[in-house]
């Protein structure tokens, strides 16, 4: 199917002997925002980290099952290529402290040693910063260090950096949990804007945020995918009792 960008079948993830994600099946739709909700420790972060194979850096982590990205089996791809196709933004803004704003955006090119014409790189910088809603704010300070920006701006810089690799999917791991409400609102607007360019998977423990931003919502509990549906359906009439309890604050 053309509108399915990512297909996960029978995914099990273990940390040592502990099962963190069990038998997870899901299909992610192209150019939509899918929120992954659940109480802390439900395996949602682990789940999205397996999607770009970042779990391989965690000692003892092991994933079973198949993940198919645009018809290609993820396990058979080079992990480095996987991470370029599936970008990731983390909880805490993490721009490279030794680089200026300009270089931070194209850090993926610089660090990977991809050589391009200077004018092309500048175009990428402007394009991605514009998409991340940061261009107007930083266009005169492109050669200053990224760490002098505010938290929200730093996070948008990180989003621009991920966009620069032109990923198919962007994984956002609680991208606003370290930000104040106004910066959070900015990022949320940005996420909604971005869905026309990229498919977004948003991990959040903030129910309200999942509601505001997402088109599809999944609810995970104790490593299992409990329910998956449109945001409207999940927020007005969830089918599963556990989802209902979570949304009404009875669990989590």
């Amino acid at each position: 199917m053309d509108n399915i960008v990512l297909q996960v079948k029978n995914l099990n993830v273990y940390y040592g002997s502990k099962k963190v994600v069990s038998n997870l099946n899901i299909e992610i739709f192209r150019n939509y925002i899918t929120a992954v909700m659940g109480p802390s420790g439900c395996g949602k972060t682990t789940f999205i980290r397996t999607l770009n194979r970042m779990h391989e850096f965690t000692p003892n982590a092991k994933a079973e099952g198949s993940i198919i990205l645009n018809g290609q089996v993820l396990d058979k791809m080079d992990p480095i290529l996987v991470r370029r196709r599936i970008g990731m933004v983390f909880q805490k803004p993490n721009p490279f402290p030794t680089m200026n704003i300009h270089d931070n955006v194209i850090a993926g090119y610089i660090l990977n040693g991809i050589r391009m014409k200077k004018s092309d790189l500048n175009a990428i910088v402007e394009d991605c910063l514009t998409k991340a809603g940061l261009w107007e704010e930083v266009k005169d300070d492109l050669y200053k260090k990224g760490t002098f920006l505010s938290g929200g701006q730093q996070q948008r810089l990180c989003i621009a950096r991920a966009l620069a690799m032109q990923p198919d999917i962007l994984l956002l791991d609680e991208p606003t949990s370290a930000l104040d409400p106004i910066a959070t609102a900015h990022i949320e607007e940005l996420i909604v804007e971005l869905k026309k360019d990229v498919t977004i998977l948003l991990v959040t423990h903030n129910i309200a945020q999942a509601g505001r931003v997402s088109d599809y919502v999944t609810f995970m509990y104790l490593g299992e995918l409990i329910e998956y549906g449109t945001a409207e359906q999940m927020f007005t009439a969830p089918e599963n009792e556990k989802t209902n309890k979570f949304l009404t604050g009875a669990i989590g």
Partner: peptide, 9 residues
């Protein structure tokens, strides 16, 4: 109306 209230509070 219901969706707006449910999703956007």
């Amino acid at each position: 109306c219901i969706n707006i209230i449910a999703k956007y509070e």
